[in-house]
Nucleic acid binder design. Structure first.
Lengths: 345, 345
DNA sequence: ATGAAAGCGCTAACAC
DNA sequence: GTGTTAGCGCTTTCAT
């Protein structure tokens, strides 16, 4: 006995396949009596419509896709991702839409994956990690598949965008540090071809006007450590550093402390994205909560709307929030303490 | 112009659909010349086979599923999950198999989701978060869909299992603490109906024989804090606590420190799962690295093998590793310092 | 209110 | 080595 099909249910209920189909979809009136017979038969046979057959017939996969062109290692330590997915899923679950994920490692595979998404695997995709000039935007437009872009993508596009204001919290952070007396404030950015990194870095520059204190990292702990070391070796070293994520911030302040600096007394430190452990570090890390979960919800809602035909809208999610903690608590030193002078707190 | 189909390619290449199909699948010999014409036509039309049509015809979705019955909030702060997915994906990517994820919030939705997986959405599923007696095992057996169980599920099943030895690192940890002089060692477990929590707790009991120092948490920071408070209020309080995950451990030691205890001098603390920030806390947290990435790879490989017909095997992944750090570094106190006596380190 | 039949785009017997 | 012809299990006209 193989899996029951709609034909089996129809036979059992003494009707045709069309009736069974309509009993469920409600796309035409079915008498209560037969409806009941159909449901009973389906229940009894444990029938579930085949999603691939339905997908073929309706040209709807009832799935949306996310393709990640990240190194699996980076994915593994990413704090943004699971929360974002959780948000996406909480919306998709309501409509019984599935999420199809694919991680790819090169451009060819990525194109093929997007093509597959457009050709039956999914009804639309969410684009993450946008580059300032992102080939995927034009590519997907050619593929004519609905897409939602996460982030402040500035290029030409008619896709829906879900943006957040990353600039404001950076500026607030700097204002906060300034108010505490800091004058030399550095920024360790993420890769600057990412729009989100770029926006944060630009906000930093607009607010401070000190490009000589800007460094481009890659979100890994290693780059956080190395660039911190570089900044602290500067003749006129910064007394505060704002990092583009918490991982780099932690690695950075660990380095500073290992070299005798006290955080926040000798060096104030702030991260970005508010990792769930950041409040538990010691000193607790000032960060910017960006509500990835909520952004996932909004992106999913926006995509479903696009798929349903309500096209091309722009949504701004107001969800970033500065979380001030000990790592930026103290007043800035009047003179920067020298590095490499080991001393106990 | 709509999306090109295999028929369009066939027409353009001057052959039939079957030839196009076979040119790609290699399931029957096609002359080099026509093969080239076919590929050229496909390339020119940008044709990609429709995955839903193929799925219907072959009864293969070329996808595997993971269904999570977790609260989205828990998912969002889970350190295991992204790394595991990364591992799964790195294997699936090679075969161009997609990963279909669904998060469900109740049993009905969960059953429906598994049924959909079995009926065209996927070719097999990976079961996470196994309970000691898990209804899904029988359910999926009835559905006759390949499945791989992650963890030391002991119930009756013919599904493949990917197990790890969680007991040994717990015992090693306790031995380590004992060697440092600790005599009262407590354990804050995860929910005991989860097999992995249960196995760890049982190992703890076998090694210590002190059920009075065992508490059942739920992996959240809140439960870590509350149960730590409870343990520290004990007349003869523990001098060391082993937690079932890092989040509870952090919350626990933060609580202890807020009440005047020094970690590790007054209380040694160890976590489990080695969150990527745990090495950067201060004191750095002793934990057990469980290589979720590798387990994801093995689970995916095992599932693909099951799908391919190589059924029902049991794989043990030897990947857990004790990571000793400062939080368990110091010698145990000869007498436990009292709680609530605020004092500076 | 229901039935009959024609696809959706592919694969797989079965021919030759 | 290639063409022909049925399906896969649904949805959706077109009838009645």
């Amino acid at each position: 006995m193989s899996r029951p099909t709609i034909g089996d249910v129809a036979a059992a209920a003494g009707v045709t396949k069309a009736t069974v189909s309509h009993a469920y979809s409600g796309k035409r009136p079915i008498s209560v009596a037969t409806k009941q017979r159909v449901f009973a038969a389906a229940e009894q046979l444990q029938w579930v419509p085949s999603s691939s057959a339905r997908a073929l017939a309706t040209r709807r996969a009832n799935a949306v896709g996310i393709i990640l062109a990240r190194d699996p290692d980076i994915l593994a330590s990413d704090t943004f991702f699971p929360a974002f997915i959780a948000g996406v899923e909480s919306v998709l679950a309501r409509q019984e839409v599935a999420l199809v994920m694919q991680v790819v490692t090169n451009r060819t595979a990525e194109e093929r994956a997007y093509r597959a998404m457009a050709h039956g695997r999914s009804d639309g995709v969410i684009l993450l990690d946008l580059h300032r000039s992102d080939w995927r935007v034009g590519f997907l437009q050619d593929l004519r598949i609905p897409a939602v872009l996460l982030g402040a993508y500035d290029g030409e596009t008619s896709f829906s965008r879900v943006r957040t204001d990353d600039a404001t919290p950076v500026k607030e952070l700097i204002a906060h540090l300034r108010a505490a007396g800091h004058e030399r404030i550095a920024h360790v950015a993420g890769p600057l071809d990412y729009v989100h990194s770029y926006v944060r870095a630009r906000a930093y520059l607009e607010e401070t006007g000190t490009p000589e204190l800007l460094r481009e990292g890659d979100f890994t702990a290693g780059s956080g450590r190395d660039l911190t070391a570089e900044l602290l070796r500067l003749p006129d070293r910064p007394t505060a550093i704002v990092y583009a994520n918490d991982t780099m911030a932690i690695a950075g302040y660990s380095h500073a402390r290992a070299h005798g600096l006290d955080v926040p007394r000798d060096l104030a430190v702030a991260g970005f994205d508010d990792d769930h452990l950041s409040g538990h570090l010691s000193p607790a890390l000032t960060s910017v909560f960006t509500d990835p979960r909520r952004r996932g919800e909004v992106a999913a809602e926006r995509l479903l709307a696009d798929i349903a035909g309500d096209l091309h809208r722009e949504v701004t999610v107001d969800c970033t929030r500065l979380v001030l903690r000990e790592s930026t608590a103290a007043a800035a030193p009047t003179t920067a303490r020298p590095l490499l002078t080991k001393e106990l707190p």
